[in-house]
Design a protein around this nucleic acid. Structure first.
Lengths: 110, 110
DNA sequence: CTGTATCCGTTTGGATACTG
DNA sequence: CAGTATCCAAACGGATACAG
């Protein structure tokens, strides 16, 4: 109970800032979008079909947020009608290790 | 654009279920509590002081949720006044690798 | 096709006071 | 000390219609 001079079990965690990471993958839909984009580039409508529960409003919000954070890139093609493609950036692809660790943990602790 | 027969870049992500993991560490306060408990056992009031922005209501809710998920243990000592201690379980300690990966990612992509 | 605008119900969470 | 009860404001998010 001596909280004044306790020795941390995991000193590498103390100064750890993962809020930034959670800000990217912690949202309600962010991971579902990521999962799709790890499979390759997708268009807005494709994402909507593959994630049936998401409303267009929420999907737009999620995509914009992730674009702002630099984990995906949005490309607009001036076709008629317009075409938009979403692709992971290297920063986004690099989330791979984190997600793998999450997958391993979830599998281990059923 | 051939979405019918595309080959995923990250096949190991496709069947991945990390919702369970995010359910534990994705909440607004969960990680801040985890960070404290990685330093060792703490009492309710200690957590409140170390996480000044959290209200008692939110802290209780977070702790109860994490207890329910099996990542921490709540021990009540029938002293007067009552004493309550929170400690990570092995399942909770095992979140360590995930958090380390998050920390590395956040550090890499300033 | 790819969103945006609007409405609105639900949920979240802070502040505060109070209890065993 | 460790919460719980209550109130209330803000944010989230779904449904729907519509615009460029």
């Amino acid at each position: 109970m001596a909280t004044n001079n306790y020795i941390p079990k995991r000193p590498d965690i103390i100064d750890c800032n993962i809020e930034k990471t959670l800000d990217v993958i912690g949202g309600k839909w962010a991971f579902l979008v990521l999962r799709e984009l790890f499979g390759g580039t997708h268009r807005f409508g494709e994402l909507q079909r593959r994630i049936p529960a998401v409303s267009p409003r929420a999907l737009t919000s999620t995509l914009r947020h992730m674009e702002e954070k630099g984990v995906l890139e949005r490309k607009v093609f001036p076709t008629v009608p317009v075409t938009v493609e979403y692709t992971l950036t290297p920063k986004g692809e690099d989330l791979h290790q984190i997600i793998m660790e999450m997958k391993l943990w979830a599998a281990k602790w059923t």
